[in-house]
């Protein structure tokens, strides 16, 4: 999950440029600074955190989804 802090974004679009999975695109809304902050495209992010690291403005935070955990937990539950 990619969370974008729209107030911090200055619109450099480096996250869109660097993303290896093309999981980000410009949104249609404007923020206070008058730029289009990025928005996540569903089901493309693999959680590599490159956008989080490459963002110079601390505007992006990547949170890993618990997909794998839930699967494991489910399988454990099945075994029991």
């Amino acid at each position: 999950m990619i969370e974008v802090n729209e107030e911090y974004c200055k619109g450099c679009n480096l996250c869109i440029l660097f993303c290896p999975r093309d999981a980000l695109e410009e949104s249609e809304t404007l923020n206070k600074k008058g730029v289009h902050p990025p928005i996540e495209i569903d089901d493309r992010c693999n959680g590599c955190r490159l956008c989080e690291l490459i963002c110079p403005d601390f505007a992006i935070v990547v949170e890993e989804e618990d997909k794998k955990l839930t699967k494991k937990q489910q399988s454990k539950k099945c075994c029991v």
Partner: peptide, 9 residues
């Protein structure tokens, strides 16, 4: 925050 550095710095 947000910091003072220019866009793209």
């Amino acid at each position: 925050m947000p910091h003072i550095f220019c866009n793209g710095c």
